[in-house]
């Protein structure tokens, strides 16, 4: 009896897992008229979540659609495409990649058959050349070659600012100096005053610094001046009020800066910093232990030369 129960429980778990893997609940939320966001899972990439861990979505204009962050894997990108097609049959004219991290852009190839223009920061092609293959291999090891996907090198490059029109809907693109990465791009939708911030804005999930702590704080200051009613974070809820939604991230980054500077003034070591800096922020963030130590280590080295 006991054995049979255990067997049934095991089978049920397996079935549930298979169902999750095949059909992740893929839900687009309309955060403002014509702006649809799929909230990513608050997790690391796994075969079960198909690396659908970042926020992705689209902006629909009167004549065309722009995809923003085409998904974390080919599978994720294909699901995004299907969800967009369920909303509108207007042509997908642009695929905007907010930066080169795999959870945001490895679904890009799913959109190639539609022939859109791929948009990115002027530094994104170089960043893909430097780390794209490494990311692809790592994702393929986890999801399998067929699912992993790859980034598409953008051809519409933004060095400072640019705009495009989706039909009565102008989107302003802005390329930023080194912050979360060295190739962060944001969008501003004039019609609804919505800022699509990509990973310059983390909400609930701990920010990861792959660029510059001080640079990020400067860029965040610039972005807080943008007259947006709301922002779409790269990780977190589909939309948060702006600039209030950036408060927690800014506080976290400032805590790191202040505590590292204090420690350096006292002659503290990088090991000590990795173990102690930011710990009071631990309960405020998901995946804190996976990223805080690395953030502190990189920021410590950065601040030594500030």
């Amino acid at each position: 009896m006991k054995r049979r129960e255990a067997l049934l429980t095991g089978l049920a778990a397996l079935a549930a897992r298979a169902a999750r893997a095949e059909s992740l609940p893929f839900r687009l939320t309309e955060v403002a008229p014509g702006i649809h966001v799929r909230q990513g899972a608050m997790a690391e990439a796994t075969p079960e979540n198909a690396d659908a861990i970042a926020n992705t979505g689209c902006i629909i204009g009167d004549s065309a659609i722009a995809v923003v962050d085409p998904g974390g894997s080919l599978t994720d990108g294909e699901r995004l495409l299907a969800a967009i097609r369920a909303l509108s049959d207007r042509p997908i004219r642009y695929v905007v990649q907010t930066h080169f991290h795999p959870d945001h852009c490895f679904g890009a190839a799913a959109f190639l058959p539609d022939g859109p223009v791929f948009v990115g920061h002027a530094r994104m092609p170089g960043a893909i050349a430097a780390r794209g293959e490494y990311y692809r291999q790592r994702l393929a090891d986890s999801l399998g070659e067929a699912q992993a996907g790859r980034p598409v090198v953008p051809t519409f490059l933004v060095a400072v600012e640019s705009s495009f029109d989706l039909g009565n809907r102008v989107l302003d693109l802005r390329a930023h100096p080194t912050a979360h990465t060295d190739n962060d791009l944001t969008l501003f939708d004039r019609r609804t005053a919505t800022l699509w911030a990509g990973d310059l804005l983390f909400v609930d999930r701990v920010p990861s610094i792959d660029g510059s702590l001080l640079g990020w704080l400067r860029v965040l200051g610039d972005l807080e001046a943008v007259p947006a009613a709301r922002a779409v974070p790269g990780h977190g809820p589909p939309s948060v009020p702006w600039p209030a939604g950036a408060a927690a991230e800014e506080r976290y980054l400032r805590v790191l800066e202040r505590e590292i500077r204090d420690l350096q003034a006292r002659g503290g070591t990088i090991e000590e910093a990795a173990a102690t800096v930011g710990v009071e922020e631990r309960d405020n963030w998901l995946l804190f232990d996976d990223y805080n130590g690395r953030n502190v280590t990189a920021a410590f080295a950065e601040l030594e030369w500030d």
């Binding site: 792959d210 510059s212 002659g267 950065e302």
Partner: peptide, 30 residues
């Protein structure tokens, strides 16, 4: 893993501008 082939400086221009600068910090407690 990957520490040797990780992309060089996160800000190459800043790094090139200050190549060769040397700082010496004394342990304040020593």
């Amino acid at each position: 893993a990957g520490g040797c082939s990780a992309p060089a400086s996160k800000d190459q221009q800043a790094a090139a501008a200050r190549i060769g600068q040397i700082k010496l910090k004394r342990d304040p407690a020593s």
